[in-house]
């Protein structure tokens, strides 16, 4: 239970996912914890390579079998640790209790089957309904996600639909078994802004309707501001900052969050030169010592280069930065 008296539907504790490559161990996700609340949206934001997608794949246990491995931590769902389940048990949870929407709907839909068949297959598998019932449910779902003319679309193939329409099909499929957690991995990145607005609107509507806990993974801070309740900012496999969405945008604590917010052009403000974060993301096989962000940080002091900062609690939010620690304040630059 969190301080607001909410019970999480999904809780991730100290998750560690490593990749074993020929160039060394990549700590894609290192000691990440968070909880997804019922009927709330948790936003996970970060740049490419920060481990946000790997977090979601670890939860679904969809990591590439040969190289990627969850080496530590717990993923708690309904008092069960998902990491300890057998493949068969996991299959009954995947899609049924925890569903996922991916970035590119064309690659996650099978081009050789009609969309109706693909959705009803999921329903038949998890709900054990008859063919006719599954079809009725599918048609209902298609109209819930506002696909015009569901009967016609039922017999169409993915290539006959537009990108936004395909993403709606994915959402219909994800919602077919009324999951308790919906993981959206960059659901609107491949879509145009007007279509993005439609899809985000739909996800929020579905969340409110079914009380699903949503995990929204994106690199777009605008999307986060629009849909999320709580936000986690990730950098190089670690949580840099966690806060409620209002706190985060009003007063970003971590220098990385601050840098991110300063480096996006704002539509509602006048032309001012963008402040960018210097340098670039360190190589995942060659992470710096101490704070992972110190190579790009403006507030760097000696301690940042030596010791990894722990998450510090600051009034309902946390930040992993030495700047808020007494040791840093005492030190000279």
């Amino acid at each position: 239970m969190n301080p607001r008296g909410e019970f999480p539907v999904l809780e991730v504790r100290n998750l560690q996912t490593y990749f074993y490559t020929t160039r060394g161990i990549v700590k894609a996700v290192d000691d990440v914890s968070f909880a997804v609340q019922k009927g709330k949206t948790l936003g996970i934001v970060g740049e490419s390579g920060c481990g946000k997608s790997i977090t979601s794949l670890s939860i679904m246990r969809l990591l590439p079998a040969l190289t990627g491995k969850v080496v530590g931590g717990e993923i708690l769902f309904k008092d069960r640790n998902l990491l300890e389940l057998s493949d068969k048990e996991m299959r009954s949870i995947r899609g049924n209790d925890i569903a996922m929407i991916f970035q590119e709907p064309m690659t996650s839909l099978n081009p050789a089957h009609t969309i109706g068949k693909q959705i009803s297959e999921a329903i038949k598998l998890h709900k054990k309904t008859s063919e006719a019932e599954a079809k009725n449910l599918t048609l209902e779902l298609l109209s819930v996600v506002k696909i015009p003319n569901p009967e016609k679309r039922y017999d169409q193939y993915p290539h006959q639909l537009s990108g936004g329409m395909r993403q709606r099909v994915m959402i219909a499929m994800a919602l077919s078994c009324e999951p308790e957690v919906l993981i959206c991995d960059e659901p609107t990145t491949a879509l145009d802004v007007t279509i993005q607005a439609q899809i985000l609107d739909l996800i929020v509507e579905m969340k409110n309707k079914f009380g699903t806990g949503v995990m929204m993974i994106t690199h777009d801070l605008g999307v986060i501001a629009e849909v999320a309740d709580d936000v986690i900012v990730m950098y190089a496999g670690k949580v840099a900052e966690r806060a409620s969405v209002d706190d985060l945008f009003e007063n970003p604590l971590h220098p990385y969050t601050e840098g991110l917010l300063n480096s996006i052009p704002k539509l509602h403000r006048t032309h001012e030169r963008l402040k960018s974060i210097k340098g670039m993301m360190p190589k995942p096989t060659d992470l710096p010592d101490g704070c992972l962000f110190h190579t790009r940080c403006d507030y760097v002091k000696d301690i940042c280069k030596k010791e990894l900062p722990e998450e510090i609690y600051m009034g309902g939010r946390t930040v992993a930065c030495w700047k808020y620690h007494d040791k840093w304040k005492e030190q000279k630059t």
Binding site: V193, L221, K266
Partner: peptide
């Protein structure tokens, strides 16, 4: 339709139908 990275800015969204 553009998401604004600031929670304080409130606007009425016009959501276009169709593609």
């Amino acid at each position: 339709a553009i998401p604004i990275p600031d929670t304080k800015v409130k606007r009425t969204k016009i959501i276009l139908q169709g593609d």
